[in-house]
Simulated scan of single mutants.
Amino acid sequence: MPLLHISMRAGKPEAYRQAILDSLYRAMREALNVPEGDEFMTISELSPANFRCGNAYGVSRSEDAVLIQITVFASRTPEQKKALYRRIAALLGESPGIRPEDVFVNVLDAPKENWSVGHGIAQFA
Rank of each mutant, 00 (worst) to 15 (best):
A74Q: 06
G120P: 09
G58V: 02
S116M: 07
F124W: 14
S23G: 14
N33P: 05
Y57W: 09
T42A: 12
P111G: 12
G58N: 01
S23D: 05
L92G: 06
L67G: 01
C53V: 14
G93P: 12
S60H: 08
V103Y: 12
N55T: 12
V117A: 12
L84F: 03
Y85P: 00
R99E: 08
A65H: 08
N114C: 14
A27H: 06
Y85R: 10
L46R: 13
R99H: 13
S95N: 14
S44T: 10
R17C: 14
E14S: 13
C53D: 00
E101W: 00
P96I: 03
R61Y: 08
H5K: 15
A56R: 11
G11S: 08
G11C: 08
P2S: 07
I6T: 15
V66T: 11
Q123P: 11
E14D: 15
A122G: 12
G97F: 05
P13G: 00
Q80Y: 07
S7W: 07
L3G: 03
V103T: 15
L92K: 10
E79F: 01
L46M: 14
Q18F: 01
L21N: 02
A27Q: 08
L4Q: 06
W115K: 02
I43S: 07
I43H: 10
T71L: 01
M41E: 10
A15M: 11
P48M: 06
F124C: 03
A56E: 14
L91I: 03
Q80P: 10
L108V: 15
L3W: 03
R29K: 15
D102G: 08
F40Q: 08
L91H: 12
F51C: 06
G93T: 05
A49V: 09
F104T: 09
E63A: 10
N106D: 00
M28S: 09
T71M: 06
K81R: 15
G54T: 10
N50F: 08
E14K: 15
M41T: 14
H5R: 12
A56S: 14
R26P: 02
L4W: 08
Q18Y: 03
N114T: 09
